[in-house]
Simulated scan of single mutants.
Amino acid sequence: MNGTLLFAGALSGLAGLLHLGCIYFGASWYRFFGAGENMAVLAEQGSLKPSLITLGIFCVLSVWAVYAFSGASLLPRLPLVKSVLIIISFIYAIRGLVGFFLMFAPMGRSPEFWLYSSIVCCVFAMVHIIGLRQRWEALS
């Protein structure tokens, strides 16, 4: 079992659970995690939009966690596990890097949101890349 990909899966899983927390706890969590005032206000008004968007993100992060766990050999091997882990790593890396530029045009978010979330995404990308490199031959 690969500890690095296991950790990568746990990171994606935790991120997914935090998104569920936003749905459950509402506007205060949307604000705390920097989702933007618009999302917080919509949540306060009872709109389904923030919950549906956040649920979609939770689903994506959950699939990513399952793929990392599969790559770590915690779960049975999933189809295209190596390719999917490469794509997940790439998406985390691109999201992390682009966020640093969005600090200067925050689009309804704070510059701090972009900074911290970009650091988190870059760390997630690095953990995935390291785990993928460790398991490269085994996943071929």
Rank of each mutant, 00 (worst) to 15 (best):
G13S: 15
V98Q: 15
K49G: 05
S62I: 02
A68S: 05
P111H: 05
R135P: 02
V66N: 08
I88F: 11
F101Y: 13
I119W: 07
A138V: 12
I87K: 15
V98C: 12
I88G: 03
G56D: 03
Q134G: 01
S28M: 10
G71M: 01
V41I: 10
M39I: 07
G56A: 04
E112G: 07
A10C: 14
C59P: 07
G131E: 03
G96V: 00
I94Y: 14
F90W: 14
A68I: 02
L52Q: 13
V60T: 00
R31P: 00
Y92R: 14
G21L: 15
A15K: 15
L48G: 14
R31C: 00
R31E: 03
G99H: 09
W114K: 04
G9A: 09
L78Q: 05
A93Q: 07
C122S: 11
L6R: 15
T4N: 03
S83C: 11
L48P: 12
R133L: 10
L74H: 10
V120N: 07
L97V: 08
W114H: 11
Y92S: 09
Y24S: 07
I87Q: 15
A65R: 02
Y92A: 08
I23F: 11
L11M: 14
G9F: 01
C122M: 06
G96W: 01
S51G: 13
R109S: 09
I130E: 02
F25T: 03
L139R: 00
R133A: 12
F69M: 04
I129Y: 13
V127L: 02
G108R: 04
M103P: 03
F100C: 03
E112A: 09
R77K: 00
L6T: 15
L139G: 00
M103R: 13
M103C: 13
F124R: 01
P76M: 08
V127E: 04
P111W: 02
I88C: 07
H128Y: 15
L102A: 07
M103H: 09
R135T: 03
S70P: 00
I129K: 09
F25W: 10
R109I: 00
A138S: 13
S140H: 06
K49H: 14
V63P: 05
Y24I: 12
C121R: 01
L6M: 15
S47P: 04
T4Y: 03
L132I: 06
E137C: 10
A40P: 01
S117F: 11
P111E: 07
E44I: 10
G3T: 06
C122T: 06
S28P: 12
G9C: 09
P50M: 01
G3F: 07
I91S: 12
L115N: 07
L132K: 03
F7G: 05
I91G: 10
S28E: 12
S117A: 09
L18I: 14
F104A: 11
F104I: 08
L11Q: 11
I91H: 12
I129L: 11
L6A: 15
S62Y: 08
R109D: 02
F69T: 01
V60D: 00
M1L: 08
V127Q: 06
N38M: 13
C22P: 00
E44Q: 15
L14K: 07
A105F: 15
A35R: 05
I53W: 06
S118L: 14
L80H: 07
R31K: 04
F100E: 04
A105R: 15
M1Y: 12
T4A: 10
S51D: 13
